[in-house]
């Protein structure tokens, strides 16, 4: 599998007067898993969404395999065609799954192959079946999203992304909307992907996943990237008091 790298340099993002991302620098290495953690509203999701330009950043650069995302040159936005071209190799998984409810699981996965990759229906459905089998849903292909559990829906969403053969996968709190007993099945699929060498950026509150699967963990607070390091150094021996305080709150909430 070809895996992308992402370089994020001095990225800033404003919502009116609100400074959502402040000079964020981050290197995302090919074939590695980067977890973004931090309190709500810290800008993790915003940063993630800037990577595939669902959110426009105002200054700085995001480069995917060396090519700047969203802009031809600073301040000059790229054409819709070029943007779509770049997005084809980036898969995204959302907190709310965002499956299309009027299509079956298989149709959800095949849609992008047909419309974006220009595949014939038969071939697209074959590929969709393979992707759904990979995420353990071979027996649910003809179900509409409403007939699936949250965990199954999220796995369809992952299949929809990987069927496009992306070189980079973005996960925006993929397990936050799930009942606790369904979190595991989604994380397992993600672990498989990571083991295959997919470049992954994961916004998550699952510290266990960050600790065991991530190659690096980035901590954000108030739009700033406070620290990036190995999971062990961020989660077990954090130097920055802001990370210490976040983890203390996390442990208090999760202890019983």
């Amino acid at each position: 599998m070809q895996a992308s790298s992402v370089e994020i340099r001095k990225v800033n993002k404003f919502y009116g007067p609100f400074h959502a991302l402040k000079d964020v620098d981050l290197n995302i290495l090919p074939g590695k898993v980067t977890c973004l953690i931090g309190p709500s509203g810290s800008g993790k999701s915003t940063l993630l969404r800037c990577i595939n330009f669902l959110e426009e950043y105002d200054s700085g650069e995001i480069r995917i395999d060396g090519q700047m995302m969203g802009y031809d040159a600073p301040g000059r936005k790229m054409s819709g065609r070029k943007l779509r071209e770049m997005r084809r190799s980036i898969g995204m998984v959302f907190q709310q799954f965002n499956l299309w409810p009027h299509m079956t699981a298989r149709e959800n996965v095949a849609e992008g192959l047909i419309r974006v990759r220009g595949m014939g229906k038969a071939e697209a459905h074959e590929r969709a079946s393979a992707a759904l089998t990979k995420v353990g849903l071979a027996d649910k292909m003809e179900n509409h999203p409403l007939r699936l559990s949250g965990g199954q829906q999220q796995r369809v969403a992952i299949a929809r992304a990987i069927a496009m053969e992306p070189r980079l996968m973005l996960f925006d709190e993929p397990t936050s909307a799930l009942d606790p007993e369904l979190v595991g099945e989604v994380l397992n699929v993600m672990k498989t992907l990571a083991a295959e060498g997919m470049t992954m950026v994961v916004v998550t509150h699952e510290m266990g996943f960050a600790a065991h699967v991530a190659d690096q963990v980035a901590f954000m607070e108030k739009g700033e990237l406070v620290g990036v390091d190995t999971p062990d150094r961020i989660l077990h021996q954090p130097a920055d008091p802001r990370i210490q305080s976040f983890l203390r709150t996390y442990h208090e909430r999760n202890s019983f």
């Binding site: 819709g80 299309w100 009027h102 419309r115 974006v116 496009m164």
Partner: peptide, 29 residues
């Protein structure tokens, strides 16, 4: 839901495809 439109954008669908395949069928319903 806006997320369903974003999901289509994220895989690189054109706005025209999005209208035809996502917005119209769901909006009409």
């Amino acid at each position: 839901p806006h997320g369903q439109i974003e999901a289509a954008r994220a895989i690189g669908m054109t706005e025209l495809s999005i209208v035809r395949r996502i917005l119209l069928p769901l909006g009409l319903v």
